[in-house]
Design a protein around this nucleic acid. Structure first.
Lengths: 341, 341
DNA sequence: AAATAACACGCAAACGTTTGCAATAGCCCG
DNA sequence: CGGGCTATTGCAAACGTTTGCGTGTTATTT
């Protein structure tokens, strides 16, 4: 009962014709007669013939498969991105090979090797936060495997990437609060080491100066993004000589920690203290007490764009050959979204 | 500069020996002399030789790849599960091919075909909530592609699966509410088509009878798991002649929809109405108004076990041949977790 | 009616690897 | 010194496709 899948060879034998004819008939090659074509297709249908992709891969040197390497599948941002990637790839008839680095540089390197051995046509990467060398990715160029980075991109030249710029969104966020009358606006920012922390700070300052307001450094505090750290940061801000009436937080997790803590301190939300955050969590839709607005980073869109770029690269790599000094550098502007309550 | 990957053939040519010798040398075949073996390995190292998996796949008929089909990658439960699957597969040197059905039966069927064409060695499946026929999965048996179902399992015999039994958790959940003094306990259940719906209902009934209480069918309502459906279900329950003081909801999404709606109706949470739910969302930790308790379903563990089973099947399928009437049926007991607020 | 074009199909190589079998060499032993 | 053995290596088929080229048949042209 354990039937092996039908092969082109069997069809050929059964019909008394050659394999090449069968192959061509199946592909509607013009040089095959209509009657033969019909016969072949009929039998193929009856035998439930499905081409063996591995054989085609070997023959064509293309696998119609793209690899995805990212830090953590279970993080909301990435699971949303991978969802987009899979959707987009599926539409173009590509399959996705998945792997997570857990922010481990060594594992990341192994995964690149593995992807190469599996002969993926291209790679989508969001680099681990500890990754310092990007040679393992750069090596792929030699093998003509294009790489598109997204969200967490390496700081090196000559790469394709799509990322989200936090500055604009931050300016919008601060402006939003200013327009609502707030003047003392606090910020619970991330660790100094992260690029995103700098972008947020810059955005904050630009928004203030654009509105001819003085920038008060004491209103920006760092935070390690844990619940405890958030509490401490909020305490600091509330103890400031200029007590903020609104706070921009590094991300939704921090915002929710802060909101929870503020409630415990009997602070009236959206009255004594208003929050604006960065949307890492799609789940915010399900909640009652949420930041008044969020800076959206569009994980789904990022995944989609990155995949589109990769597809484009895959379909044009034969032509432009070595002259292709053009690199995709897509910046998605973050955008403030007012949360409906 | 665009070097093609090194092949075994090139190594053979460079060394003036045959490909078979190279192949065997690389695999430490005993019949190859030590000196040749060393020479081959040295050159292979220098040329950065990596075996072409697609060729090996074709030759061996095995791809060392497992397919995963699940409804929605961006749902917390599944992203946690896929994370476990990838981790476990990685340890056994397998790669995972990923696809989401979006609960669309037609797409699910296409994906099965695609997986088959890609010659995955085995399949991990969580079926879509509307899937009514499972023939597309059953067909894989003929091709000797083992399937392990997890979480959302079809109600058919002779399959391998790992699932979480909702009954125990539900009994615990209802008992928890009874102990708190509730007598009119409502349940917003899922669609009748899902196995999990039945289990919840059974658990509910058992908990009631165990406590010598009468089971009132009007207190259990179905729901399509959407926000609108949830509102309607809650309306129904609140209009019941015996108005419930506590409600068990099908999952956290439903719970949060219900909680949001209840607040809009000015119902005092944890006072007029208490909720218990099933934990699909790790993010519930970040929120203020949450169900009093949740039934944990261990997505990571489920993914892990399912992958282990599949690995086991893959490594023993040659032997037992057709005598294997033994099917893995792993039940993970759900467990009530009281949410700290 | 002969030359030519158009059509339909088959042959065989190629993709990179594995592996059963054959072949060669060197060696020991009688 | 020849027979047999072992240790090493090569040959070639196989996995399932695709595709350039060649060939035979039929239809069209002048």
């Amino acid at each position: 009962m354990q039937s092996k899948p039908t092969t082109i060879k069997e069809i050929a034998q059964l019909l008394g014709i050659s394999v090449s004819t069968v192959s061509r008939a199946l592909h509607d090659h013009p040089s095959i007669g209509l009657t033969t074509r019909a016969k072949v297709k009929k039998l193929a249908g009856e035998l439930n013939y499905e081409p063996n992709q591995t054989a085609i891969f070997l023959q064509k040197g293309k696998t119609h498969t793209i690899g995805v390497i990212l830090p953590e599948l279970s993080e909301a941002f990435f699971s949303s991105a991978i969802s987009a990637i899979e959707d987009t790839a599926y539409k173009k008839n590509y399959t996705v090979l998945l792997a997570q680095s857990h922010d481990d540089e060594v594992k990341e390197k192994q995964l690149v090797e593995k992807m190469k051995n599996h002969r993926v046509d291209g790679l989508l990467v969001s680099v681990g936060k500890n990754t310092s060398s990007f040679q393992h990715f750069e090596n792929l160029k030699k093998y003509n495997i294009p790489v598109v980075y997204f969200d967490r991109i390496p700081n090196i030249p000559n790469i394709h990437y799509v990322a989200c710029n936090m500055e604009i969104g931050t300016i919008e966020a601060v402006s939003f609060l200013l327009k609502k009358g707030h003047r003392a606006i606090g910020m619970i920012n991330g660790p100094q080491t992260m690029v995103a922390t700098g972008e947020r700070k810059e955005g904050y300052i630009k928004a203030m100066t654009k509105n001819r307001l003085k920038y008060d450094p004491s209103l920006i505090v760092s935070c390690d993004l844990t619940e405890e750290g958030t509490k401490k940061a909020l305490d600091d801000l509330l103890a400031n000589k200029r007590k903020p009436t609104a706070i921009v937080t590094f991300n939704d997790y921090v915002a929710l920690f802060a909101i929870k803590y503020a409630q415990k301190l009997n602070i009236k939300l959206n009255q004594d203290l208003e929050f604006v955050s960065y949307a890492n969590l799609p789940l915010i839709n399900y909640m009652e007490n949420i930041p008044a607005a969020s800076v959206e980073q569009f994980p789904y869109l990022q995944g989609q764009k990155a995949t589109d770029i990769l597809m484009d690269l895959l379909h044009h790599q034969d032509k432009g050959s070595n002259e292709q000094s053009a690199y995709y550098k897509i910046i998605i502007e973050s955008q403030l979204i007012e949360n409906k309550k």
